[in-house]
Design a protein around this nucleic acid. Structure first.
Lengths: 397, 397
DNA sequence: CAAATTTAATTTGACTATCGAATTTACTGT
DNA sequence: ACAGTAAATTCGATAGTCAAATTAAATTTG
């Protein structure tokens, strides 16, 4: 039943290099993996025998000598699913081994905090719905990745706190794993976004970058040396509560001056009352966005301040972590270019760059289903790591 | 001439574990290194043959069975020296393999920025002075570690900028290496402090912590997973320029609101004019410190604000990196408990701690010569890494 | 006090991952 | 056809590792 019959560590590394590059000849793996040709040959043979990759002829104009045969992932080598919990709904995606989305499904859940039991119930249901669009059954899934906002310990599977769960701390991974009867990985939703960028997005050819998501809250995923960085004690970076103003605006965490208290939906809504007609929160936010886009000065200034605070927070991150690239994504970013502009301006003004190229800033607009895509990446990532660890464990034992 | 005849990677790991633990039996290395007894035996034999360690009988009350023989470092296995550049003087220390200081020496240099040529000249001279107190000659040194404030790239040996160098960017390492004819490692001075804590200080039994130094400026060293973290692009963390106040006080870097602009000597001096009798800068700072200690409210408030800003910066670090321990050290910390108290208060108020033990804060008072001690640790660290790399390179080549 | 017991450390034999060098394979160009 | 060239595999050697057997040095027990 084990989808990855234990791979040797070089085979695992070769696999992830093939994934990153799409289609690549064996020769071209020698350099990046820093292995001898002999070892690359052994590793790729292992991957072929495990039916994880397949050969494909080189389409490039042939030169002299034996033409290279390219290697690529076999899409149907295995399948995973991923999901993300949002405020009010759940999105599920089913992915093949290449990371292509085969099907998605979405289900509404009550807004605000829900119980883990209900979450598990609804996730199972939504997964079934998604699977109906494919030739797969639940038993065909090699792993399931799940992302949610809050403080999540991937290692233990524990969610210590989430704005969308009523009964945290709770071991969401074990609860899900029991229901779906397949391996489950959970993570903070910003980490999903980072992983999605690393595996399939703009971070594909990078080893160090930050992903900042702006939606109901602010999220940060840190990729260092080609892997997610989860902090010294396994909890993700709590960027949302970086202090950008001493004794500043009140945050829902109870502290003052948190970045989130200037940038999150609820923070914008707090100020929107002075700029738009009163109404319910969502309507006011929508009006605020519309007015800002149309050039209404007060509305625009609300977004500008949010962007300014976010830019300042990013500058602080740049000064500490020194990443060459920052990727901005999420719903709010998508709608409001004003925000992005102000972020960039403030970042440039406040980040040090000494005698070297300044940090690149890249805005990646993407929608909800792609969060689930990221959750799939999380599942694939865990499989890859398991394969690597398996080899090490075998060698060590 | 190579002091560490290439060690296998397990031997290198065993060596650093022996260093950390002081004296340890072979059995007790099995667990921490996660190796079989057979491999530990082979590794320690290798270290014995390289004359890096020696046996010593166990002094503990004997139990049943064969008594364990302890292993410890041989102090005279090799020697290193380290130095730190301060504003106005240079300190050098000569260390044995255990990290014990055999001799130190100090030389005055002109205050402010000096040329690299002069630095090298004076370092060589000071090193000779220190060596006169020992039975060693320059040729007996296996490596030389050097720390200075500023933006330093350890990998390339380049100092991109320093408040104490007039001709940066300049490759200080190569310049020093040519003069001393032994391998040289250079690093940011805060990283030295972190390394000294990791090898010999309060971080000895920790794998993740921050070291914050407060002197003329503010420095930060980050230890993650038992090794110095130098940022994605090899430059240290620029904590001094974290923004703690948007559009805040003017910093000597030209930006506004930098932590340093509230905490560094020059920042305190800027405010001191309103609290003490006018005079030259050092005299004013001394008067300020004295008055604050004696309870003079205005003077105390200047330190309190500095501590508050520093605490806020630390809280931001904690939220991003989630370290279990922060070590505060440096001159200013030593003199002003007011600062330390305010740091702790603000840190506690602004760092998130979710359902887990809060970060520990530890104040480590130490003087100038111990910076040089850290520089020695840097040299030892590089030797250890070189030994490990040597083994890997040999295996890979 | 000799034999049994206990714990520490080494040796042995086997296995795996790796490498460099030699070889095989599959093309192009003349 | 056949030399030339580049890609990929095979081969023999080596280093690092482990489990199991063995040796070593002490204490406890009869």
């Amino acid at each position: 039943m084990n989808p990855h019959p234990d791979l040797s560590s070089s085979a695992a590394r070769a696999l992830s290099e093939i994934r990153r590059r799409g289609a690549v000849a064996r020769v071209d793996l020698v350099g990046p993996l820093d292995l001898s040709f002999a070892t690359v040959s052994a590793a790729t043979t292992e991957l072929m025998e495990a039916a994880l990759i397949e050969e494909t002829p080189d389409t490039a104009a042939p030169g002299r000598g034996r033409p290279r045969t390219l290697l690529r992932l076999r899409p149907d080598a295995l399948h995973v699913a991923g999901a993300k919990l949002n405020d009010g709904f759940i999105t599920v995606a089913v992915l093949d081994f290449c990371g292509d989305v085969l099907a998605t499904a979405s289900t509404d859940v009550p807004k605000g905090r829900i119980a883990t039991a209900l979450l598990v119930e609804q996730l199972d249901r939504t997964l079934h719905a998604a699977l109906r669009g494919t030739a797969l059954e639940k038993g065909d899934l090699a792993a399931f990745g799940f992302g949610l906002p809050g403080f999540v310990e991937t290692e233990s599977g524990l969610c210590r706190w989430s704005p969308l769960l009523s009964d945290a701390p709770v071991n969401v991974r074990d609860a899900l794993s029991a229901r779906l009867s397949c391996p489950v990985v959970i993570d903070n939703d910003a980490n999903l976004a980072a992983l999605a960028e690393l595996w399939f997005g703009k971070g594909r050819h990078e080893t160090d970058f930050l992903v900042v998501t702006v939606e109901h809250g602010v999220g940060l995923g840190i990729v260092l040396d080609g892997a997610l960085f989860r902090g010294a004690r396994g909890l993700g970076a709590e960027f949302a509560h970086m202090k950008v103003q001493i004794d500043g605006a009140l945050c829902r965490c109870g502290q003052r001056g948190c970045l989130e208290a200037y940038v999150a939906d609820y923070a914008l809504a707090r100020e929107a009352g002075l700029a738009v007609e009163p109404g319910d929160r969502d309507a006011m936010l929508e009006a605020l966005a519309r007015q800002a886009t149309e050039g209404h000065e007060i509305s625009a200034s609300i977004y500008r301040r949010a962007g300014r605070m976010l830019g300042l927070g990013l500058a602080n991150l740049v000064n500490i972590l020194d990443p060459p690239l920052i990727i901005l994504s999420g719903e709010t970013i998508r709608h409001h270019h004003l925000l992005a502009e102000e972020i960039e301006r403030t970042l440039r003004a406040n980040a040090l760059s000494i005698d070297r190229p300044p940090v690149r800033l890249s805005v990646h607009r993407w929608g909800d289903q792609l969060w689930a895509h990221g959750a799939g990446a999380l599942a694939l990532d865990r499989l890859a790591m398991a394969a690597g660890d398996g080899a090490e464990a075998r060698q060590a034992g």
